[in-house]
Simulated assay, not measured.
Amino acid sequence: MGCFSSKPDDASVLIRRRPASIGEVAVFVPGLRVPEPLELPPPLADSLPRRLTERLAASRDRIANMAAREALAVTKPRRRAATQHGASTSADLVQALEEYLPVILGMAKDGSELEDKIQFAWMNQEDDAEETALPSAWYEVLSVLHMMAMLRLSQANSLLLPKTSLEGYHTKVSEENKRASVEVFLKAAGHLECAMHQVLPRMSPEKRKGLPVDLSEGVLKATCMQALGQVT
């Protein structure tokens, strides 16, 4: 599928021209949905390649732990957590998701016997009771793309927030940050477009009915329009 193999900058085709600058805005970012620990009943675990199950479990645990740190960073956007390499937690989490995505796509590809063998569970960070589990690799792909889009929106929000000087004054958002936010909005829109047009159609009507509200086609479309609305 084209949206999975394309480069991040390819999302720029979604609009014809980029504005020279955009106004100072705040972006609404829905709560992150994070993966729950992978639980496999013994008969199923014994029938699956051990290397695959270990990689799935390790990747999901890593993403969940990084998402917890990102949630803390989002609550204090002016003091975002940094890694030992100096990159933001958000950027590292996006990279972890990008590395995990090919593993899930391998399970979801046409003809794969693993597409509906494993039940994947995700929980909304803002509501512990809102957990959705479905036996579908495409649901996992959809959840990963949604998380990547939400992280991009959070990154754009951070770029557009006025910084506080040492004297306590709010400084104006730089034109450089405004231009950078355009690229980030386009990446978020690209993830959401891919989710709507390349992933949802591959899920059965029954499984689509079981999706949480955040992953419904209407909400994905509205969030995508919000992202594109910031750059048009």
Score class of each variant (00 low, 15 high):
76 K>L: 07
117 K>A: 14
120 F>R: 03
89 T>Q: 13
106 G>W: 01
109 K>T: 14
83 T>N: 12
59 S>K: 11
112 S>W: 01
65 N>G: 08
122 W>I: 06
118 I>T: 05
93 L>T: 15
87 A>M: 13
121 A>E: 08
70 E>N: 11
89 T>F: 12
104 I>H: 00
121 A>P: 08
102 P>D: 04
93 L>H: 11
70 E>D: 06
127 D>E: 07
94 V>H: 01
98 E>T: 14
77 P>G: 07
68 A>Q: 11
129 A>G: 15
68 A>K: 08
83 T>Y: 02
75 T>E: 09
133 A>R: 11
66 M>A: 11
90 S>R: 14
85 H>F: 08
98 E>W: 08
86 G>F: 04
112 S>Q: 04
131 E>Q: 14
128 D>C: 10
82 A>R: 13
87 A>P: 02
130 E>Y: 03
95 Q>P: 01
74 V>Q: 06
62 R>S: 13
91 A>Y: 06
108 A>M: 02
112 S>R: 00
106 G>V: 14
80 R>S: 13
94 V>C: 07
103 V>R: 09
74 V>S: 08
85 H>N: 15
69 R>Y: 00
65 N>I: 06
80 R>C: 05
69 R>P: 00
115 E>H: 05
85 H>A: 13
71 A>I: 13
62 R>Q: 10
115 E>Q: 14
100 Y>L: 11
116 D>Y: 01
71 A>V: 12
73 A>F: 04
132 T>S: 12
114 L>Y: 09
82 A>H: 10
95 Q>H: 12
58 A>P: 11
79 R>W: 04
70 E>T: 10
60 R>H: 06
84 Q>I: 10
63 I>R: 00
129 A>Y: 09
70 E>K: 12
58 A>S: 15
65 N>R: 15
89 T>W: 01
104 I>R: 07
66 M>R: 07
113 E>Y: 01
100 Y>D: 05
112 S>L: 09
67 A>H: 04
126 E>C: 00
105 L>Y: 03
97 L>K: 07
62 R>G: 08
59 S>W: 00
88 S>L: 12
127 D>S: 11
83 T>W: 10
132 T>E: 04
121 A>C: 14
110 D>S: 09
112 S>E: 04
105 L>N: 11
75 T>Y: 00
75 T>K: 12
112 S>G: 02
135 P>G: 03
110 D>W: 00
57 A>P: 02
69 R>H: 05
125 Q>C: 04
84 Q>W: 03
124 N>H: 07
75 T>H: 02
73 A>D: 09
112 S>K: 01
59 S>R: 11
76 K>D: 09
133 A>I: 06
110 D>Q: 06
61 D>P: 04
70 E>M: 09
114 L>D: 06
90 S>I: 14
93 L>G: 06
94 V>D: 02
87 A>F: 10
122 W>C: 01
128 D>K: 14
120 F>M: 02
102 P>M: 05
133 A>M: 06
74 V>L: 03
100 Y>F: 14
93 L>K: 10
81 A>P: 03
91 A>K: 09
97 L>N: 02
86 G>N: 05
68 A>E: 06
113 E>W: 02
73 A>T: 11
100 Y>V: 03
128 D>A: 14
130 E>H: 10
133 A>F: 02
121 A>Y: 05
135 P>R: 08
135 P>M: 05
134 L>R: 02
133 A>K: 05
102 P>W: 02
60 R>F: 08
76 K>E: 03
